[in-house]
Every structure is written in C-alpha cells, then in structure tokens.
Design a binder for these strands. Structure first.
Lengths: 259, 259
DNA sequence: CCATCTTTGTGCACGCGTTCACAAAGACAT
DNA sequence: ATGTCTTTGTGAACGCGTGCACAAAGATGG
C-alpha cells in the first residue's frame, strides 16, 4: 500500500492474505461482543452474520491462522479472541503519536477505541506554539520541535497524521526519519515513503465522492440530463489540431449521458 | 441478501469498475492541484506519479470514461477535471446530514474538504437535547426528533453517522426509512441495510489494527516468541479430544509456506 | 461400537483487477 | 507530404480474492 515506487507483493504477509488481515479486526470485534455476553462457542455461520461476511470466506480466513475450530461444534470464542489478538499483534502495547491537534486530531485523541485495545496515545504533537502545554484528552500537547525526541524516547513505531494537507508530507518525512514505520494518514494527500514503511489513508472526501458516484447512478437512471448539461465553464475540448471527426465529448461510452 | 438480480454485480456500474471509481477522486485531486498552478496538459506518467499509482492503471481507468487524451501530448487538465467531476456527480449539489455531534461529528462538520466540492452540510443532528440549538461550525444542531423532517425537507440522500456504536444501527434505520440511500459510517459497527442502499465505513481502530499486524511482522522476524508467550489469561484450548501436538501459540509459519 | 448429524476445512472454478507490452494516433520538424 | 518521436489506448496474461460444494472430522445418541 505504500506509495513507494517498487511494487511489493504486499499480500505475502507470512502467508496471510491482505484481504484476510483486513477482516480480522472485524471478526475480533464480533467475538469480543460475544465474549462479553459469555457465549462459549460460535459457529462460522453465526459469526459471519455478526461480522457481515460470507461464512465460507470466514472459514477460509480462519484456516490461514490454523485449525482453531471444532467440527460439529464451532469455534471457542475466548480461544479465538486470543488467537486473533495475537496474530494482529494486539497482545503487546503500541505507543502511538498523533500529529496535528486540530478538530480532527483532538477528536482522535478523545476516541475511546484508540486506547481500548493495545494502542496507547503516547503523545500529541502540534506545530502551533500556542497549543503547547494545553491538555487535550488529558494529555499535554507538545510542540513539533520535540517530535524526534518523543518518537525515540517512547519507541513509537506508529504515527497518525491529522495535519493540513500542506504539512503532511513534511511531517511524514520527519516521522519516518525518526523511526516510525507505520503511518495512518488523515490528510488529503498522497504520501510518499521509503520501502518498508506502511501507509494507510483515511480520506473523508474520497469516501463521499464514491458515494456520490453511486448516488448519481441510482438517481440518474433517467433524470440526470439537465443537471450536468450546463456547467459554469463550458467543457470545451482542448482543440486537437484537427477537430473534424472527433467522436465528441461523450465519445463512444455515453456512460450517463442520454442518447 | 441480493437475491434480486445476478448476485451483486456491484462492479457493473455501467461499465466503470468499482476499483476505478475509488481512484477517480484521487486523480481529481491531483488534477485540481495542477489546474491551480495553471498547468495546461499532463501526461499519464506525470499524473500517475502525482496520484501515487501506476501509469498503465491510470490510462486504463481513464479509458473507461472515454478517450479524453491526445496521443503524443497527454491530457488536458481542465477538460479532465470537468469530465471526472461530472462522472462522480460533483457538478451537482449534495446535501449531507451528520448525525452524532460529538468530538468526531464536530470535527467532520468543521472539515473544509466537506463543503469544498459539491457537498453541503445541510444539518447537524444529535440525540442530546442539551446540544439542540447550539451552533457547531456555524450550524445549529438539531434534535434527533427532527431527523425525518430534515431529510425529506432538504432532499438529503447522503447521511454521515458519527454516533456511538450502540446507536448507529437505529440511526441508520431511521435515515434509510426517511429516504437516505448512501451512508458513510464512522461508528465501529456493522450496519445492515436494505438492498439499494450503499454503506461505506471509516473505521479508525480497524486501520490501526491492520498497521499493527504489519508492524508486528516487520519487528517480529526473530523476537516475537516471548512477547505473546505469557498472556494474562492462558490461552487454553477448548480441549478437543486430542491436544497432543498442537502448533502452539507461537508456532507460526502455519498453513501456506512459500516455496 | 456403530450410525447419524452437525460443522469445519478446503479443492476448485470463476471473475475482477493489475500489469506488461505494443500498435495506433497524433504532434512536430523538415 | 513524409518521417520521426511521443504518448495514448488496449489486448492479453496472470494473480488474488470469492464463493460453491463436498469430504473429513468430531459430537451425540442408541
């Protein structure tokens, strides 16, 4: 996923497919809920329903971890919680730093799900000197100048970037230089990192745009013609030397455009 | 389930693959930046680098939209911005409601990227009566009781859920019943919705757990054995008939072993 | 101990997505 | 015009992920 250049297999994570890894937290959450209700065992069918996936997929996912089920019975909830936690590395403590304590950064710092499972907010960092010392979520914000020291002193390997887009790459570079090897990026920018550093991005506006696409498709089966027909700026084609037999702006793939 | 048609095409959105749709916002962002710098044209190679993807992939993605490039030159930036915007449905206005104005909800309401491109925060809704009338990001929070009326009056089709997990499904149901057909879910829960409703989820702790997995792998190439060996609760196996030679909690290298 | 029933674990096939590699198309110089 | 050079658009191959369908494994009852 890293925006680096080389194309890593990315899926050869010790034999466990990336798609499976992405679902393990989902299973873990469902299992934890069952555990709190003292449910001793669960079948793949039940657990799959709770996690919102196909039961065959769930069984195949678990098969990558080992044979932890009992045929005819199902899976032992507690045991599975432990196994998945261990596989995800949640049995150890992960100190995390959040850089950029604006609205979003503060919300993340206050987010309960953070500290709940293995993750601990080691520090909050912001570039604004006025923020320094101010407590957010019970933790005093520190200035960006301290970044390198904080990372090394606390052995932080996971960083969260919640800065404006303009500062993200610079912050990223400093985090990586200081030893961070996993980054969760909330800034709307593509981060480029060296090989071996993982980057995952959470991008609000991208998600909304994807929804808008499907929404338009759903609504625009027969009534979307006038909306996009007259934009502010006329969609003039770049005028390619010869404009005679162009297929037209809509080309051969009319997509949503009415015939 | 999707028993209606051919088992959930999901990707047959009129010829444009889902994976491509997910990248269009990325291209659009890079193109917008170029546009602001008054760059007239851009090659697939340059744009791909800016978006952090492979150039062949980018060209193929664009080919689904039509033939908008000029061989030997590249793509006209302005024209492409328009085409992608139109394809994503960003040439029209999308009123959005945010339900759950806690730390996260408030941060989302303040998020600039929201209103910037086609999306408009039509209302903020919270279940806490004390919040009602209080302005957040310049908009007065309204009580949950008004939810249905707000949706229908404003013609809202996109809803953002930023409530606690416990309330998410209920809120979701009400949104859908009121006419919302696209939901962006920030609550750590699996939402179940009827056919025809799109749900995208943004889950902080899942992203962190995925990072932790890779982090553990990177760090644990030779030192991960003792960490998980002594958990608080001993990972007792559910005691199957035979417990002889289990691979053990840290006997990794399970199933698939690369040749 | 045997028969039956439940549920796991997985072989297999299929389809989507990615990438390579190259022919087609157009710009540009002569 | 013609040739050369650049860059697009895409055919084809390959690999990953998904879901079906079933045999193996174990529980349970007689």
């Amino acid at each position: 996923m890293a925006t680096g250049r080389t194309h890593r297999p990315a899926t050869r994570s010790r034999g466990i497919p990336e798609a499976t890894v992405a679902r393990l937290p989902l299973y873990l959450r469902a299992l934890t809920a069952l555990s709190e209700r003292s449910v001793p065992t669960v079948s793949s069918e039940e657990l799959a329903a709770a996690a919102g996936v196909n039961s065959a997929k769930l069984r195949k996912d678990f098969s990558y971890l080992g044979s932890y089920g009992t045929r005819g019975v199902g899976y032992d909830v507690e045991y599975l919680v432990y196994q998945i936690s261990r596989e995800l590395g949640l049995t150890q403590d992960w100190p995390v730093v959040i850089v950029g304590i604006g609205n979003l950064g503060a919300a993340l710092a206050n987010y309960g799900g953070f500290a709940s499972r293995g993750f601990r907010v080691a520090a909050l960092i912001d570039a604004d000197p006025a923020m320094a010392g101010k407590p957010v979520a019970g933790i005093a914000v520190q200035h960006t100048d301290e970044l390198e020291k904080i990372i090394t002193d606390n052995g932080v390997s996971i960083g969260v970037i919640a800065t404006p887009a303009g500062a993200a790459q610079q912050v990223c570079d400093r985090l990586v230089a200081a030893g961070v090897t996993s980054i969760l990026n909330f800034a709307p920018t593509v981060l480029s990192v060296p090989e071996g550093v993982d980057v995952r991005k959470v991008d609000l506006s991208i998600e909304l745009q994807i929804l808008a696409f499907h929404e338009q498709r759903k609504a625009g089966e027969e009534a979307s013609s006038q909306d996009a027909a007259q934009p502010a700026t006329t969609p003039v084609r770049p005028a390619p030397a010869d404009d005679s037999d162009r297929k037209g702006p809509d080309g051969d793939v009319p997509a949503v455009m009415p015939a």
